[in-house]
Amino acid sequence: MLTADRVIAAALMVLSAYFMWHATALPIGWNGMTGGPGGGAFPFWLSAIMFVTAGAIIVRSFRIKFDNPDTFFDQETLRAVLVVIGSLVVTITLMPWAGAYIALPLFLLWYLKVFGKHGWTLTLLLTLGTPVFLFFFFEVTLKILLPKGFTEPLFIPLYARFF
């Protein structure tokens, strides 16, 4: 637990340093002309507080005597979480290229059948039902077009029918 605490605090330190570096693009000091701080001051000094706070969390972690015996991740959880995150990355990568109507059902199929070990009836019901619902809710009702990628031509007859 303590190791994880330190790693996360260190990562936040790096993040805040990165923010600070970005913020220096605009003046970070007091602007004498208009009165008040420059455009970069708010992000810069807030990130500076983050940097110091993260440092304090690390220092504190060395002064605690007893480590919480719980581990941050057990093997099983870590695997499940990584697999789910991976599948989301694949789905989102596929979306602009193959379209939402291929990427999302593929995700459902994988998640329900392989990850969730459900039967075919439930899996197919949701895998086929969800895109139909999404199409009618977002595209037909709200007029928000979801990405289609190379499947775009297949939707032209549907557009003609519903718009």
């Binding site: 789905t91 979306m95 999302l104 995700f107 969730g116 949701l126 999404l134």
Partner: peptide, 12 residues
């Protein structure tokens, strides 16, 4: 898992 998958879709 059914609930999770639907929430993920809604989030995306």
């Amino acid at each position: 898992t059914v609930l999770c998958s639907l929430v993920f879709i809604l989030c995306i």
